[in-house]
Design a protein around this nucleic acid. Structure first.
Lengths: 90, 90
DNA sequence: CTGTCAGGCAAGCTTCTACTTGCCTATTGT
DNA sequence: ACAATAGGCAAGTAGAAGCTTGCCTGACAG
């Protein structure tokens, strides 16, 4: 479980998390299509794939393989490392 | 109020937030000394100053000037943009 | 007034990061 | 079997980020 903070630093990766929160279990191609149409993000398939690697290394995305499909699920629990670190004032 | 996520991406900046949480209202030189002794971070004065600029742009640090001193105070409220964005599972 | 201390500004350098490009593997449908 | 689909690997590139270096400004003490 690598650097959660670094994973959140990129706007495209945050859009991916947004998209996975709205609909979990998407494939790479599904994500690419929806990022363009719903989030105005125009990234190539390889770029999104590399972003997913970073998110997975940070523990924010879990994957499961079925045949030729690879589904991506959101896992927000690593975000606790942020909220637990600093006392957040109202 | 710029990019909170980008501000958190750097380990030295996170150490600065840690240090300011432990003792708020520190000056630049104070921070440099305590970062070295308590956090094992060896950054030059200019480096720390630039980090503080980023943190201030993100709204995580507020400053007040008194004479030749400039005090830095922690403000964690921008962290809500993170916790409010994604539903955090237990 | 002069020296010292706290901080600021800006150019240059180096490393990292995001992205592209090109090709490859594996699974599924016809 | 063959083509199409879903995804992976790796080298190369452009730009951003972090840091250094050198000099400058402003405040206070003697």
């Amino acid at each position: 479980m690598g650097d959660v903070f670094k994973a959140l630093a990129d706007p495209t990766r945050r859009a991916i998390l947004d998209e996975l929160q709205e609909r979990t279990g998407q494939t790479l191609f599904e994500l690419c299509a929806r990022l363009i149409s719903k989030h105005g993000v125009s990234s190539s398939r390889q770029a999104v794939s590399q972003h997913l690697d970073v998110l997975e290394a940070a523990g924010l995305v879990r994957t499961r393989r079925e045949g030729r499909y690879k589904f991506h699920d959101l896992d927000t629990s690593p975000l606790r490392t942020i909220t637990d670190r600093w006392r957040i004032d109202s």
